[in-house]
Structures are given as structure tokens and as C-alpha cells.
Amino acid sequence: MSDPIYEKVRGNPKFAELVRRRGRLAALLSALVLGAYYCFMMVVAFAPQILAVPLTEGGALTIGAPIGAAIIIISWLLTGVYSHFANGPFEQLNNDIVRETLK
């Protein structure tokens, strides 16, 4: 037997909007992160000479290190983007849904 509060929440059009918007953002950000990692791994597997180019003449640090670090930093930044939306527009929608459900 289903709880009437859950049914009321599921029936709220704002809940459907929240689920749709949050899912779309999560899918987009996940695709960006996975795409970046996948591309990097493909370069490592099939064209490692690209990443083996030294940053400076005779230097030991190659271009692969900053590219790898950039991918990690981009992942952190995209997590921040998701947090911004989760604590902003998504939180507002969630508060509206709770307020309307408890009326």
C-alpha cells in the first residue's frame, strides 16, 4: 500500500520538472567527465607519443601530466556546477514541493 504523501509528491508537476531537470543536468555533466576521461585514455592507449612531449627542452615533465591534472580539475569544477544547481534552483523546487505537499 502506497503512502498518500508519496502519491501527492509524485503527482505534483513540480516534482516531474525537478526529476527531469536534475536528470538532464546529471547526464550532461557525467557525459562531459566520462568523455574527457575516455578521450585521455584513448590517447594513452593509441597515441602515447603525444603525451610524451616534454614541457621544456630536456625537461622530465611531459605534456601528459598537466593534461591529466586538467581533467581532474575539470571534474571538480563540474561537481561545483552540480552543487550550485542542487543548492539553488533544485532546492527551491524541492522546497515548493514540500510546501505544497504539506498544505
Rank of each mutant, 00 (worst) to 15 (best):
22 R>Y: 07
50 I>D: 07
94 N>S: 15
7 E>L: 13
82 Y>M: 13
96 D>T: 12
51 L>E: 01
32 L>Q: 03
63 I>A: 14
52 A>P: 01
51 L>I: 06
70 A>I: 08
41 M>C: 14
16 A>N: 09
100 E>G: 10
57 E>A: 13
34 L>W: 01
74 I>Q: 10
28 L>D: 03
97 I>D: 05
98 V>C: 12
72 I>F: 10
4 P>G: 06
6 Y>P: 01
53 V>N: 06
39 C>Q: 12
48 P>L: 03
33 V>F: 00
80 G>Y: 05
23 G>I: 06
45 A>T: 08
101 T>C: 10
10 R>D: 15
61 L>C: 07
101 T>R: 11
3 D>P: 00
65 A>V: 15
78 L>R: 05
49 Q>G: 14
72 I>Y: 09
41 M>P: 02
37 Y>F: 09
63 I>Q: 10
36 A>R: 00
35 G>S: 01
17 E>T: 11
77 L>C: 08
79 T>E: 09
21 R>Q: 10
51 L>H: 01
27 A>P: 01
21 R>T: 13
73 I>Y: 09
54 P>E: 02
57 E>N: 12
13 P>A: 14
24 R>Y: 08
37 Y>P: 00
76 W>K: 13
46 F>M: 07
85 F>H: 15
103 K>Q: 14
54 P>Q: 02
16 A>F: 04
55 L>W: 03
30 S>H: 02
75 S>T: 12
70 A>R: 04
96 D>P: 03
7 E>G: 12
16 A>H: 08
32 L>N: 00
20 R>V: 04
81 V>T: 10
16 A>L: 08
75 S>D: 05
79 T>D: 11
71 I>A: 02
88 G>Q: 09
82 Y>E: 09
48 P>M: 01
54 P>M: 03
99 R>L: 15
37 Y>V: 12
84 H>G: 08
58 G>V: 06
76 W>S: 15
60 A>K: 11
15 F>N: 12
70 A>E: 02
43 V>Q: 03
43 V>S: 04
8 K>L: 11
101 T>M: 11
61 L>G: 10
70 A>D: 01
46 F>K: 10
26 A>M: 09
39 C>K: 10
60 A>V: 13
85 F>S: 14
22 R>P: 02
87 N>Y: 12
5 I>P: 00
18 L>Y: 07
55 L>E: 03
67 I>T: 06
3 D>V: 05
11 G>S: 15
12 N>H: 15
2 S>G: 06
3 D>N: 09
20 R>N: 07
19 V>N: 13
96 D>Y: 05
67 I>G: 04
49 Q>T: 14
